[in-house]
């Protein structure tokens, strides 16, 4: 009989199944680092994507992703896991951490009275390199943080309006307003890009 692949369990029909988050968290709580590694590999992409879109910086996104996942490791059995697994919890933790960082950045900017020079190279890169993804990133980073968070959760993470409201601890109506303002701003900021996209669609 062949041994099971690491981290997989055999289902009734003989097919190999990935263990659920709840099972992995239980194993991780007993100090099983392999179970934690499976959880990390499963969620690092989605969690870092939220952080990256909120913070607009790879290094900072990696920092908060690491902090959030290590928090999971430290909490272990103290975390209550239900149907959707650990993803919603991780998303909430990483969003809060990212927002804290954005706020502390702003405090530093105000107290030190430093002009926002960090954005300039990326804007130049967008203008000179005509990189659409950089332009989109610049436009996203220009949004107010709550609008960016609502859009990230709704558009990129696929949460429903109600789920976004729960994650942000605001009302449905507030989410609707944040999303609408975010998309309108982006539509204006990226008008050249989406018009080019439509034009190229028509040529095809």
């Amino acid at each position: 009989m062949k041994p099971n692949a690491p981290g997989k369990t055999e289902a009734a029909g003989g097919a190999m199944q990935e263990p659920s988050d709840a099972v992995l968290v239980q194993r991780m709580s007993g100090g099983d680092a392999d179970a934690f590694a499976l959880l990390v590999n499963r969620h690092v992409g989605a969690v870092s994507a939220v952080a990256r879109r909120l913070l607009g910086d790879d290094g900072e996104a990696e920092d908060v992703t690491q902090e959030a996942l290590l928090k999971l490791w430290r909490l272990g059995a103290g975390l209550s896991i239900d149907g959707p697994g650990v993803r919603p919890w991780l998303r909430r933790v990483v969003s809060n951490m990212a927002i804290d960082r954005i706020r502390s950045r702003r405090r530093v900017d105000v107290t030190d009275d430093v002009p926002e020079v960090a954005e300039a190279p990326r804007q130049m890169q967008a203008l000179e390199g005509n990189e659409v993804s950089v332009r989109v990133d610049v436009a996203l980073q220009a949004l107010p943080e709550r609008q960016r968070l609502a859009l990230t959760l709704f558009h990129f993470e696929g949460l429903s309006q109600m789920e976004v409201a729960a994650a942000m601890n605001v009302s449905d109506e507030a989410v609707e307003s944040l999303l609408a303002r975010a998309r309108r701003s982006l539509k204006t900021a990226l008008a050249g890009e989406w018009r080019d996209l439509l034009a190229s669609d028509e040529r095809v």
């Binding site: 870092s48 990133d137 996203l140 558009h155 998309r183 990226l190």
Partner: peptide
Amino acid sequence: VREALALDRLLNVAPAL
């Protein structure tokens, strides 16, 4: 709707790690 879909597609090219 086409314009909104074009904007959606643009957002999907936002950089990730």
